[in-house]
């Protein structure tokens, strides 16, 4: 199944399983994500996509299998350690620091790149100030990149939905990741907003960051993905280029029962 060799894989999952009580949320899931690619994970609701993300980011521990990122195992890392190794994420349901400004939200990403401890902060050492200046600079870059720099002093909760989505991506980018994991970034966005989003995601990829996303909007998935993996009932049922996946009978069946989904696939094909 795996196309990219493990040397060029940014993230490599092999035989990963996770059960909650009697429910097998993810079973024997394997996937290689090539460096510099955009890979999408799709599947019906409840297929286990977000669980895969939570396993990668250390929120859950897998029951079995291996997960390697950039050549090193990330099996036993805590979520903040996963971020330190270079994996940043966004959430399906936005999780912003609502009562803090956008700037403060994004600076959070730089926390793990700074080292100043209690004493350094108390004495306000030169090293601390330098490091903070750099952190602020990177936060500014992230905000500008997402086009929300003008909202920097606005509280996160006061932003429009689309801008809040952007803010969360900016916060993830501020961690200077090698791999960016987006959980339904186009969820709730209108057509114009998701077009913009596709541009942003391509830009991010072009700047050298590998992107891995969950998405339901087939237009987005088929429009930007280099590779698409399909999940159903916790298993991977298909993987390939968008065209391959679109014509895969298993995938069509997984999505079938509804002609609408078929139409969506067809439309997405035309959009390409």
């Amino acid at each position: 199944m795996t196309m990219a060799g493990s040397e060029t894989a940014m993230l490599s999952l092999a035989g990963v399983s996770k059960s909650f009580g009697g429910l097998k949320a993810v079973s024997d899931f394997s996937l290689d994500i090539a460096k510099g690619s955009i890979t999408s994970l799709i599947g019906p609701n409840g297929a286990g996509k977000t669980t895969v993300f939570n396993l990668i980011t250390g929120i859950y521990r897998p029951d079995s299998g291996t997960m390697r990122f950039d050549g090193a195992s990330i099996m036993s890392l805590l979520p903040h350690q996963v971020v330190e190794t270079g994996i940043a994420r966004t959430f399906q349901t936005l999780r912003l620091f609502e009562n803090l400004t956008c700037f403060e939200n994004v600076v959070a990403g730089q926390h793990c790149r700074c080292r100043a401890g209690f004493i350094a902060c108390l004495l306000n050492t030169a090293a601390r100030r330098r490091e903070e200046e750099k952190a602020f600079k990177l936060a500014e870059e992230a905000l500008r990149r997402l086009g929300i720099w003008q909202f920097r002093d606005e509280l996160a909760k006061n932003l429009s939905y689309g801008d809040r989505r952007r803010l969360e991506i900016a916060r993830a980018l501020a961690t200077v990741p090698k791999l960016l994991i987006l959980d339904e970034p186009a969820g709730g966005l209108n057509e114009q907003e998701s077009n913009d989003l596709m541009g942003i995601i391509r830009d991010i990829r072009d700047s050298g960051i590998t992107v891995f996303l969950i998405e339901h909007d087939m237009r987005v998935v088929m429009g930007i993905s280099d590779r698409v993996a399909v999940m159903e009932y916790g298993r991977k049922i298909a993987e390939g280029t968008p065209e391959e996946v679109q014509h895969n009978p298993d995938v069509i069946e997984a999505y079938l029962g509804s002609d609408e989904e078929d139409d969506e696939f067809a439309k997405a094909g035309e959009a390409r």
């Binding site: 805590l78 971020v83 999780r95 926390h111 993830a172």
Partner: peptide, 10 residues
Amino acid sequence: EDAVAAESTG
């Protein structure tokens, strides 16, 4: 503000 988001932001 949000401990889960904080942890996932490093």
